[in-house]
Simulated assay, not measured.
Amino acid sequence: MHRTYSMRQTRAPTASQIQNPPPPPSSTKSGRLFGRGGFGHALRRNAAGAFGPDLAKKLTQLVKMEKNVMRSLELVAKERMEVAQQLSLWGEAGDEDVSDVTDKLGVLIYEIGELEDQYVDRYDQYRVTMKSIRNIEASVQPSRDRKQKIADQIAQLKYKEPNSPKIVVLEQELVRAEAESLVAEAQLSNITREKLKAAYAYQFDALQEHCEKVAIIAGYGKHLLELIDDTPVTPGETRAAYDGYEASKAIIQDCEDALTNWVSSNAAVNPKLSTRARTLSMRRRNNIKARSEGLDLSGQDVPLNDRESWVAAGEHRSHEYEDEEEPEDDQAHSVLDSDSGLNGEQHRGRAPEMAA
């Protein structure tokens, strides 16, 4: 900037960076072999799925496409900072209010470019995490191939030499290969779910922080525009002297303070689910929790320790029951305890009661 005052003069860590330390620089910011253009993008995207194990091809292509996205974001960040500098240079020759406001607007736009550059570094966390899933997929492919190869050999032998002793040996190898494949598949399933959630948590957290901070800058930028006097003047009339230098500095300082103190817990945008979505999501989380913890059946067969609640068979008539439900144990009698019994005969011990 051509002015001495700039938001980038101090590099103290922000509250968000203290709470969530920034990652290392993105791996896409160095080692460019095909440059920044569309040729490199197309080559990476099309060649990504042509090599490697079949199981990992689709995710390999996704990872390469995300690399293209990151390099595009880098280019946008760099050009936005150049635009900010050019805006400040253009406004320098204007009137005092235009010169001051365009310079401060350049400061804000340059800060957006800086935020976009930081966003690329956090976006790379997402991409690297997705790459770890791809690596696991690639490691599982050999066990699948080995199992399929043995199965094909067994099928071929059974067709050509049904009595070959090699069939028994191959079937034993197939059992071992299937066991190894089960372990590998379970590991892939577990890691895929864990890493997928972690990867997109990185991306959405970074996106939320970036968008919230850009919204803050946009708000203060509109306050800066209010300092420009756009009242029409007649030819030969002079405008009043500009007295907004301190105000523009104060707006920039307030913007810097807001960006420095921003943390995710104070985000202005908090997505709220509808009642239906919240109910369905809660049901899904409860089902997952129940499956992970197992069903609690400890209270299903609790022993009855209250000996006084038991009544002898001969005392049933003399024991008065009011409008109370029968105890669970009385309801749980099998069909053998009914009046007719399993074979249509009266239960022993009932006859004296009925005779009485």
Score class of each variant (00 low, 15 high):
L73A: 03
P165N: 01
R283K: 10
P352F: 00
V128A: 06
V69W: 08
L196K: 07
S298W: 10
I191G: 09
N270D: 12
Q141A: 15
L73C: 03
V214I: 11
Q346A: 12
A48E: 04
S143F: 04
L89Y: 12
L225I: 05
A198N: 04
N343V: 09
S298D: 15
H319F: 07
P13L: 02
A351G: 01
E322C: 08
A277Q: 06
M70D: 14
E185Q: 02
A247T: 14
L297P: 05
R44Q: 07
S99H: 02
P21S: 00
S132V: 15
A290D: 10
P165S: 02
D330P: 06
L55M: 06
I216S: 03
S72K: 07
N68Q: 06
Q203W: 12
V233K: 09
D230S: 06
R144M: 07
Y123S: 06
T275M: 06
V101C: 00
Y110G: 09
N270A: 10
R71Y: 11
Y5C: 05
E171K: 02
K166E: 12
I228C: 01
T60E: 13
S72Q: 09
R307F: 11
Y321T: 11
D100K: 01
D330V: 14
V263T: 13
D230G: 06
Y159S: 15
G52R: 00
R32L: 12
Y321H: 12
Q125H: 09
K147R: 13
E256K: 15
